[in-house]
Amino acid sequence: MKALVMDRELQVMEVPTPGLLEGHMRIRVLLALVSGLDVDIEAGRRPYSGIPGTSFVGVVEDVRDQDDRRFLGKRVLARPIYGCGVCDHCRTGFEDRCRDRVRPGLYGAPGGHAEYVNLPARAVVPVPDGVRDEAAVLAPPVAAIYEAVGRGDLPGWTNVLVIGDGGMGMLTALSLASAGYTVTLRGKHGDRFDVLRRHGIHFNLATEDDELLGERPGRFGPALASYPYVFEATGHPSGWEAAVRLVSPGGTVYELSSFQDRVPRRLTAVFDRNIRVLGLRQGSLEPVLSIFQAGLFDPTEAVGPSYPLEEGPQAYEHVRTHKDRLALLRISREGE
């Protein structure tokens, strides 16, 4: 099969299609997301060799276990993280606390930037009819954002500040706006005004780092008040400082950046200003897919162009250099 393989550098390669192990299902990948995580791997900021790709949709073509036959021919979305399935946490329904978690494309299993992926049934969610592949691959990040409500006590209908207008920041702003929040997006690019305006999102441009930090007021936007709820989605070292400074004392920062830059950070502001910082990475996929199915939110405006698998490195290039920072790999078509 064809796959993108990271081995010191990223290449399109012909690799053996993996044999189907017990308990696994063979998934033909339809569409995969290229995100900042994948670019971190490509740039060597995350140690990983193998096939990347953490978020992808595919069709189940073969199964080993009789129980999994119900998945045959179905469209599924890979869970970005799944548990070992045998430890106490996994068996008692707390898979998210498992210490041997697998993250396809990051550790423990190959990812979805390939024609085929083998995964156990517990690692996938069926995609409901009516949800496009382009939307479904965005369900994992959107689910992480919505976790702020459940895990992070984000009350309804409040003002929130989103810092960073790259792909993840846009997706965060759109997700929150669609959920009824009054969103101010603060970022350095400002190239998606049309989308933001359509969704009633305020934009606050900070062209320089010191503006991002709130030392100088940003341009073309409301003056920066202090916000009790701030989402940090810059993926950039200045984002952390900006978030812990711009949040009001006693407020909450929802952290979506993974800090692969390894820039050491300061922490005392968290104590001094009584801030709560909640790391968000994953959430329940099923409710998000239901929201997409009901047409309540279309996240696809946050995504850039799509590329065929052969042009995978260009898709990475796009994410690395472009401001919208998310791209798609169209790997195969349903029914092919």
């Binding site: 998210d96 895990r151 992070g152 952390w240 952290e255 979506l256 950046s257 993974s258 800090f259 692969q260 390894r262 050491p264 950070r265 300061r266 922490l267 005392t268 502001a269 968290v270 104590f271 001094d272 200003r273 009584n274 801030i275 709560r276 910082v277 909640l278 790391g279 968000l280 990475r281 994953q282």
Partner: peptide, 20 residues
Amino acid sequence: DDGFDLRFLTEREIDLVGVK
């Protein structure tokens, strides 16, 4: 107050709370 590696925050989805 410097040199904190905060990768654990999103890697393990930790909730970090300052109390003063």
